[in-house]
Design a protein around this nucleic acid. Structure first.
Length: 750
DNA sequence: TGACCGCGTCTTTTT
DNA sequence: GACGCGGTCA
C-alpha cells in the first residue's frame, strides 16, 4: 500500500459500496485493480467470491500474473477473472440446458455469422444489394446489445419503422430466422453470449440469485466500453450487495460502434446514487509535454467527466509533426526515423520500445514494406489474423463438426474441402431434405439410407466416406488428448495431404500454418497438463480458441523473439504503452474517418487520437501526407483537424518535406524509391506516351524481376504511360501478368 | 463437379 | 488491391 499514491490508496481501500474510479491514461489503473483484489483477499474474502471482468484476455492475464506473484498460483487461480465473454461463456455452459443449448455449443465468429446471414438472405430471395450482410449483421448486433430479441424486435416500433424507412423491412424476419438457425445449430455468436446471459438471469431468478451469492465483490475494467447488455449483467449481479467497483476513463471510450455506451460511465451516479467517484489524475507514464498535449486535444470535446491529468515526469521532447508527399514517403520517413532512434547515443532504444499506430489496418502494408527493406524487425497485429486464415478455419471447422454435429456452418464449410465430389447440388439436396424433415443436415447424412435424395451412387459413396470420417473421429473425442486427435483429423480429412500436392508458396504457407495450429494445441495441452494434471480434450481447446484474439496469438508468437517494432491500429493499442510512438495518416477522411459525420462520432475519433497520444512515454511523431494510395486509387487529402487541436506550444512542425529532400539517405538502390523519383520528377521522357519501349528506368525488356507475391519473372514488354508504365511480365509460376510499375513491388535482379 | 476467368464491390475500428 | 460472385467450359 505504501507504493500507492493518496488517490490510488483511497480508491483501493473503499469497499463499502459501489465506486467508480476514473483513471486517466497511465494513471496506474491496473495497479489499482490488482491492489484492490489483494486488499479484498486480505480482508478475508475467499478468492472464488471475487469477479473481475476485463475486455481483453491480455488484461486479464496481466492482472492474474501480478496477483499470482503476490499470493501464489493456488489462490490466484480460484478468482473469477477473465473477459466478459470467457466468464459468461463458462456460466452459459454450466447452465446451457436451461436456455435450450447443450454445454458443447459452438461460438460463431463474425465470418460464421455473415455466412449464415448470407444464406438466409438468399433463401428468402431478397436482394443482397439492399440487404447487405454487413448492414444486417450490424443491425442484429445492435439489437442484441440492447437486449432486443428477435421477437421483441418485430414488435418494436422504433426498430421496425426505422427499417421501413430505410427500405429494409425484412430485417426483423432475417433476425428471426437467424436466431432459430443458430439455436438449431447449437451455436451462439459473440452478442448472443451476453444476450443469453441476460435471458438466463431474467427467466431463472434462482440462477441469478445463485450467482449473486457467489460473487461477493465485482470489479470491472474499461467500464467506458460496456454496452447495455454488459451494464445490466453487472447491475443485476451486484443488485443485492452493491459491492461493485468499476474502473474506466470516459476520455478513452472508443468502441461505440460495438455498442459501447459512454453513458454507462457518465451516468454512474444515476445508477448508484450512493456511489463514490474517485479520480486518478496523475500520469506516471508520459512526459509532461505529452500529457499536456493530450489534455489540450481532449479539451475540445464537450461530453466528458472533467478531470485534470498531470505528469511529474520530465518535460520531454516536443511532438514532431511532419508532412510528407505520399504514403510511400511517409513509410520511408518512419523507417529512417526508427533507425535514428535506435542509433541514439545518449539512450538505449530497442525495437520493442517503438510502435507505429494507424487508423485502419490497410495502412500497414506500405509501412511493412519500408521496414522490411531496412531490415527492421516488426510484428503486425490485426488484419487477417491467424485463426481467420482459410486453412486454419477449415481445420477448426473439422474440429467443430466433430464436437458438435449440429454445427451447420462448419458442415457447409468443409463438406467439400478438400474436394471430395460433394458439390453445390448435393449440398442443396441435403439441406432441403433437412428442412423438410425439420432436422439438421447432419441427421440426413447420418441416416442417409433412410432418405430418397435422388443422388448418384458415386455421390452417395462420397457422403458415406465423409460420414465415416466423423464417426471415427467422434469416437476418440473423449478418449485421446486434444493434440493427438487434432493431428489425426488434419491427416484423415485430407487437409494436410492437400497442401503436399505441390510446393507453391501458397501451399508451403498453408502447411506451416497447419503445423503452427498443431503446435498451439500442443502448447495448450502442456499448460493444461501442468495446471490440472490431466490431458485436455479437443473440446476444451475449442472452448478457448473461439475467444482468442489476434493480440493473444501475436504475443504468444513473439515470446521467443520479443525485440520487434509493433504495428497496430489505435484501437488495438489501448492499454499498451511504448517509449516512442508514431501516429501516421493524420488526414481528413482517414483520421477522422470519412464515416464519422455526427458530432458524437467526431468526439469519439478525437478520443481515439487521445488514446494514440497517450500511448507514448517519451516521444511521439505524427505524420500526414498529401496523396495516398487508397482503395486501388490515388487520393488527395488535407491535414487532419486533430493536428490543429493540439496546442502548438507542445509541437514542432517540420515543413513540407518534398519527396526528394526526404531521400537524404544514400540508399538509392531500392527499386521502388528509384521508381518514385522517376515517376514524379527526374524522368526524362524520351518516348511518347503510350508507346512501347525497350527500357524505362531500371526496367528493360528481358530483365529478370522479383515480385513479392508472384515470385520471379521476365519482362516481356514495357509501355510508357508518362506518369506510369505498364509492364508485361512472364512469371515462372503464375504466367503472364500486366503490372503498373509505380505500384508493383518489383525488384530487378541483376 | 470443379477449375478458371472476369467483373463489381468494398475497405473503420473488434470482444 | 483483395475478395466474392456468377458465368463458362472441360
Amino acid at each position: 500500500m505504501n507504493t500507492l499514491n493518496e488517490q490510488q490508496r483511497i480508491a483501493v481501500e473503499y469497499c463499502d459500496g459501489p465506486s467508480l474510479v476514473i483513471a486517466g491514461a497511465g494513471s496506474g489503473k491496473t495497479r489499482v485493480l490488482t491492489y484492490k483484489i489483494m486488499h479484498l483477499l486480505n480482508c478475508g474474502l475467499p478468492p472464488e467470491t471475487i469477479l473481475a471482468l476485463t475486455f481483453t484476455n491480455k488484461a486479464a492475464k496481466e492482472m492474474r500474473d501480478r496477483i499470482m506473484q503476490m499470493v501464489g498460483y493456488q489462490t490466484a487461480k480460484r478468482l473469477w477473472m477473465g473477459t466478459f465473454h470467457s466468464i459468461f461463456g463458462r456460466i452459459l455452459r454450466n447452465e446451457a440446458e436451461k436456455i435450450g443449448f447443450t454445454p458443447d455449443f459452438t461460438i460463431y465468429d463474425t465470418e460464421d455469422s455473415k455466412r449464415a446471414l448470407k444464406s438466409i438472405i438468399k433463401e428468402m430471395m431478397l436482394d443482397d444489394k439492399i440487404y447487405k450482410t454487413n448492414l444486417v449483421l450490424y443491425k442484429i448486433s445492435e439489437a442484441k446489445n440492447n437486449l432486443i430479441t428477435a421477437q421483441s424486435y418485430a414488435q418494436n416500433k422504433i426498430y421496425t419503422s426505422q427499417d421501413y424507412y430505410n427500405h429494409t423491412p425484412m430485417i426483423s424476419e432475417i433476425y428471426r430466422r437467424y436466431a432459430i438457425y443458430c439455436k438449431r445449430n447449437n451455436a451462439m455468436d459473440f452478442d448472443d453470449m451476453l444476450l443469453y446471459t441476460n435471458i438466463l438471469f431474467r427467466d431463472f431468478p434462482d440462477v441469478l440469485t445463485k450467482y449473486q451469492n457467489t460473487f461477493g465483490y465485482i470489479l470491472v475494467d474499461e467500464y467506458q466500453d460496456t454496452n447495455f447488455a454488459q451494464y445490466l449483467i453487472i447491475n443485476q449481479l451486484g443488485a443485492t450487495h452493491k459491492r461493485v467497483c468499476v474502473v474506466g476513463d470516459d476520455a478513452q471510450s472508443i468502441y461505440s460502434f460495438r455498442g459501447a455506451n459512454i453513458k454507462n460511465i457518465l451516468n454512474f451516479q444515476k445508477t448508484y446514487p450512493e456511489g463514490k467517484i474517485f479520480k486518478l489524475e496523475r500520469n506516471y507514464r508520459s512526459t509532461k509535454n505529452i500529457v499536456n498535449a493530450a489534455n489540450s486535444l481532449i479539451e475540445k470535446n464537450h461530453n466528458q467527466h472533467k478531470k485534470i491529468c498531470f505528469s511529474e515526469n520530465e518535460d520531454g521532447e516536443k511532438i514532431t509533426i511532419s508532412q510528407l508527399f505520399s504514403d510511400y514517403d511517409e513509410s520511408y520517413a518512419v523507417a529512417s526515423n526508427i533507425e535514428q532512434w535506435i542509433r541514439k547515443q545518449d539512450e538505449q532504444v530497442n525495437y520493442a520500445d517503438i510502435a507505429i499506430l494507424y487508423r485502419t489496418n490497410a495502412q500497414s502494408r506500405v509501412l511493412e514494406e519500408s521496414l522490411r527493406k531496412r531490415m527492421i524487425p516488426y510484428k503486425v497485429y490485426g488484419g487477417t489474423s491467424f485463426y481467420q486464415r482459410k486453412e486454419i478455419k477449415d481445420a477448426l471447422a473439422y474440429f467443430r463438426l466433430t464436437i458438435n454435429h449440429k454445427d451447420e456452418e462448419a458442415l457447409k464449410r468443409i463438406i467439400n474441402v478438400p474436394a471430395r465430389g460433394i458439390g453445390e447440388t448435393t449440398l442443396k439436396k441435403l439441406i432441403s431434405c433437412a428442412t423438410n424433415h425439420n432436422c439438421n443436415t447432419w441427421n440426413i447424412i447420418e441416416n442417409l439410407e433412410d432418405f430418397d435424395l435422388n443422388i448418384s451412387k458415386k455421390t452417395k459413396e462420397n457422403l458415406i466416406n465423409f460420414r465415416e470420417l466423423f464417426i471415427n473421429n467422434r469416437k476418440q473425442l473423449f478418449e485421446i488428448d486434444a493434440y493427438t486427435l487434432a493431428n489425426n483429423i488434419i491427416r484423415s480429412s485430407g487437409l494436410k495431404t492437400e497442401t503436399l500436392r505441390d510446393n507453391t508458396q501458397e501451399n508451403i504457407s498453408k502447411r506451416e500454418n497447419l503445423d503452427e495450429l498443431l503446435k498451439a494445441i500442443h502448447a495448450f495441452c502442456e499448460t493444461q497438463q501442468q495446471e490440472t494434471g490431466t490431458q485436455p480434450f479437443l473440446s476444451d481447446f475449442m472452448q478457448d480458441v473461439a475467444l482468442l484474439t489476434d493480440q493473444d496469438i501475436e504475443d504468444e508468437k513473439s515470446k521467443n523473439d520479443p525485440n520487434k517494432v509493433t504495428m497496430m491500429t489505435i484501437h488495438a493499442s489501448k492499454g499498451l504503452e511504448f517509449d516512442y510512438v508514431f501516429i501516421v495518416g493524420l488526414e481528413e477522411n482517414l483520421f477522422p474517418s470519412s464515416m464519422m459525420q455526427s458530432e458524437n462520432d467526431l468526439e469519439e475519433e478525437r478520443r481515439l487520437m487521445y488514446v494514440a497520444l497517450t500511448r507514448a512515454k517519451k516521444g511521439c511523431a505524427i505524420t500526414y501526407v498529401k496523396q495516398r494510395f487508397r482503395n486501388g486509387r490515388m487520393e488527395f487529402s488535407n491535414p487532419s483537424r486533430f493536428i490543429q487541436d493540439i496546442d502548438s506550444q507542445y509541437v514542432k512542425t517540420t515543413n513540407i518535406v518534398s519527396p526528394i529532400s526526404n531521400l537524404n539517405s544514400n540508399n538509392f538502390s531500392s527499386k521502388s524509391i528509384h521508381n518514385f523519383l522517376e515517376n514524379n520528377h527526374l524522368t526524362k521522357i524520351t518516348h511518347k506516351k503510350g508507346e512501347q519501349c525497350q527500357e524505362l528506368g531500371e526496367f528493360a525488356v528481358g530483365k529478370r524481376v522479383k515480385h513479392t507475391i508472384f515470385g520471379f519473372g521476365t519482362i516481356q514488354s514495357i509501355e510508357d504511360l508518362g506518369n506510369d508504365s505498364h509492364l508485361r511480365i512472364q512469371f515462372d509460376n503464375v504466367g503472364l501478368k500486366t503490372l503498373l510499375s509505380k505500384y508493383a513491388k518489383l525488384e530487378v535482379i541483376d
